[in-house]
Amino acid sequence: MKPSVVKEGRKSSKTKRLLHILLKIFAAILIAILLFIAGVYTYNQIASHSEQKRIEPYGQYVSVDGKQMNVLIEGEGEETVVILPGYGNAAPGLDFEPLLSELTHYYKVVVVEPFGYGLSDQTDKERSTEQIVSEIHQTLQSLQIDRYILMAHSISGLYSMDYVNQYPDEVSAYIGLDSSVPTLSEQKIDSSVTDQIKWFRNLGFPRIQLMLSDDPYDELPYDEVTKEQLQILRQKNMYNTTQLNEAVSMYSNFQSAAQLSFPPNLPVQFFVQANHPVTPEWAPEHEKQLANSVHAEMVLLEADHYLYRTHAKEIAAKVREFTGALTTQ
């Protein structure tokens, strides 16, 4: 046999052995990945089942369109404040506790948990502004609440612009807690993106994500029991289908609100973070919203987006001053 043929045979044999080794390594990695995914899925299923039993109910249920919407009502003041949460809030009735503890001395406070939030049911109805506003209004009507101050955080500020124009005889004043403005729109999210997130959610990976992320309630004025419940409900509601549908509808909801403004005679008070980390136009755009309002005030706070968690006393005091001045006019 020629030496060149022998060398070629040896090279071929080495190549086959190398490919065989690489194939084994690839198979081992693939099996390890599949086992990891299976482990995450199984752990999440067991943990979720256990956590479901540990949820402590709060508030009361109101039937809306055949679903149950949870509402927390505290305080016995003559005036009523209705609070609406920002996008993705895991448990509004618990999350707003620092502000509730300050406001309930002087107001009757109603925290609405829209569908997909807190202890409320999910819904497959579209998450248009019109639909969300209708559901919230039905809830308040069922509770016979027909005159109130509307207070909204983040994206609920966008929905509130439609709300106050639809029900001007019910809303006595509007308070924005770093609320969204139509001119600073969220990016468009396609349903194909949320389909991928659903896979991520169904496999149990949000639990790992939360384990690796910072606790947003660390060193804040919440007791340990409330923190535990917030953690359980964060896990329960994270990336749920109702909230993902709301994310898909968000861009069109911003576009629909582009031509809206607050009624000139509606008292409006904004609490806005003074230094937005990525949007320098944040405060100026809020100020523009108040241009035509007869009774308006903007309060700048050295805080992050969730300013009601850290500046509850200041917000409550300013709200009292603002609403108190209205009653003396």
Rank of each mutant, 00 (worst) to 15 (best):
V6Q: 14
E8Y: 13
S12W: 14
S13Y: 11
S13K: 13
K14A: 09
K16E: 14
K16R: 14
R17P: 00
I21C: 08
I21K: 14
L22K: 15
L23E: 07
I25C: 13
A28D: 05
L30S: 13
I31Y: 05
L34D: 05
F36W: 13
F36V: 12
F36A: 15
T42K: 14
T42I: 09
I46Y: 11
A47Q: 14
A47T: 09
S48D: 13
S50A: 15
E51I: 00
K53V: 11
I55E: 12
S63R: 13
V64S: 09
D65E: 13
K67P: 02
M69F: 06
V71I: 11
L72H: 10
L72I: 02
I73V: 12
E76K: 13
E76A: 06
E76M: 07
V81C: 07
A90E: 14
A90H: 11
A91T: 05
P92R: 06
L94I: 04
D95R: 10
L99P: 09
S101Q: 14
L103P: 05
L103K: 01
T104V: 09
H105F: 04
Y107M: 00
K108H: 00
P114L: 05
F115P: 06
G116A: 04
G116F: 05
G118H: 06
Q122T: 11
S128I: 02
I132A: 11
Q138H: 15
Q138Y: 06
Q138S: 07
Q141A: 10
S142F: 08
S142T: 10
L143I: 00
L143S: 04
L143Q: 11
Q144F: 02
L150P: 01
H153D: 02
I155S: 07
S156H: 04
L158M: 03
Y159T: 01
M161R: 14
V164R: 08
V164A: 03
N165S: 00
N165W: 01
Y167D: 00
V171W: 09
Y174A: 06
L177P: 08
D178S: 02
S179W: 03
T183C: 08
T183W: 09
T183E: 15
L184D: 13
S185A: 15
I189G: 06
I189T: 10
D190M: 06
S191Y: 11
V193P: 06
V193W: 11
D195G: 10
Q196V: 10
F200R: 02
R201F: 03
G204N: 04
F205H: 07
P206W: 01
I208Q: 06
D214L: 01
D215L: 04
D215I: 05
P216F: 07
D218I: 07
L220A: 07
P221S: 03
D223C: 04
E224Q: 15
K227W: 08
Q229V: 01
Q231N: 12
L233I: 05
K236Q: 14
Y239P: 05
N240G: 11
T241M: 10
T242C: 13
Q243M: 15
L244W: 10
V248P: 06
M250G: 08
Y251Q: 12
S252Q: 15
F254H: 11
A257P: 15
F262G: 13
P264E: 12
V268I: 11
F271D: 08
V272Y: 09
Q273A: 05
A274T: 10
P280A: 11
E287R: 15
S293I: 10
E297T: 12
E297I: 03
L300E: 12
E302W: 01
E302G: 02
H305F: 06
Y308T: 00
R309M: 14
A312H: 02
A316H: 05
